[in-house]
Nucleic acid binder design. Structure first.
Lengths: 174, 174
DNA sequence: TCATACATGTAATCCGTTACATGATTGT
DNA sequence: ACAATCATGTAACGGATTACATGTATGA
């Protein structure tokens, strides 16, 4: 159900077309809940059928301008305050760590180094996003920054952790 | 493809039946790559058809004992050393943070407090797992502990971060 | 004997990705 | 004229969840 509320939430922040929304997904939402074009257009039709959003205008090229309805806002609030039915956490990266005993310790070490390097690269990417983005002084900007801060801390933690595992591997193989 | 390798990897660590594997998924794998019973039995048949695992014995109640083949080990190694085609990161929790501007700051604050409390509860749960588990001195145990350490650090970081956001919300509303 | 654990499977449904398909407008 | 961008949609496939379905061995 989460994509549904990602779309509903972005439209609640600001009305727009599917095409507009798609671009907003690519920039701000990409690191939180990525979605494809197909999926988004399908979901918008479902949301409209459910009466949670409505078409306020049809422009050139069949452009449909969507806006959240009262029922939509209500449903969004309901979802946000009821965090029980979330999809479970899955991480292919962590799964690999779990299975590292199936490789030689050289291979395992190399993998953990690559994890650390990847996390460090992501960290600098997030730092650039933080420094280049126009945040403004709105609530939307504030919570966007808070979400980004989470990303920064995840990557910093992950890099530290991976370096620590590398050290432990070295300690064990001596 | 990740479930495929989760199953293959666990069988590589130790042979067993689908039923055995299911229990191992519920205990050690639950926090890394959860899977349901249906999915697992289906995947085991696919793996056997692909020649990556084989049935070594059929016991009472139709129990099928599986073991990884050479081709299976090879394919597992290939997957582990090629981390390019992983599924993207998605977090419903972070999505809610991103959309907190659609709630009143009281509601947003309460949500962030609940995030912090949830993270703290998970942290103590992980600490209990760490202290109660029999780890032994094997590679399997070592990398299992490393994965658990990741979970511990994620939850500690998340609790800190959520407390920090709460403080920022308080600062802003004055 | 009867509950519990062992043991495996199928069907329906939804979510997500990739690829395909179509067409209108705008700026150069 | 033509390329780029705007704009939306469908179809096929695979992954994941839930519910349904069935039957056997063991131990109290």
């Amino acid at each position: 159900m989460s994509l549904r509320y990602a779309a509903l939430g972005l439209l609640a922040q600001e009305p727009g077309s599917g095409y507009d929304l798609l671009k907003r997904f690519d920039v701000s939402m990409a690191n939180v809940w990525p979605a494809t074009q197909s999926q988004l257009y399908g979901e918008l039709n479902k949301l409209a059928n459910a009466g949670l959003i409505e078409v306020t205008d049809v422009g050139p090229r069949g452009r449909k301008e969507y806006r959240v309805t009262d029922a939509g806002r209500q449903d969004l609030l309901r979802w946000m305050t009821n965090p029980q039915d979330d999809p479970p956490y899955r991480s292919a990266e962590l799964l690999r760590v779990f299975l590292l005993s199936e490789m030689t310790s050289e291979q395992a070490r190399a993998y953990m180094v690559s994890v650390a390097e990847h996390a460090e690269a992501e960290l600098t990417r997030y730092e650039q996003v933080r420094d280049c983005m126009e945040w403004g002084d709105t609530d939307v900007g504030f919570y966007g920054r808070a979400a980004l801060e989470f990303g920064l801390r995840v990557e910093a933690m992950e890099a530290d952790w991976a370096r620590w595992v590398v050290k432990e591997i070295d300690r064990r193989s001596n």
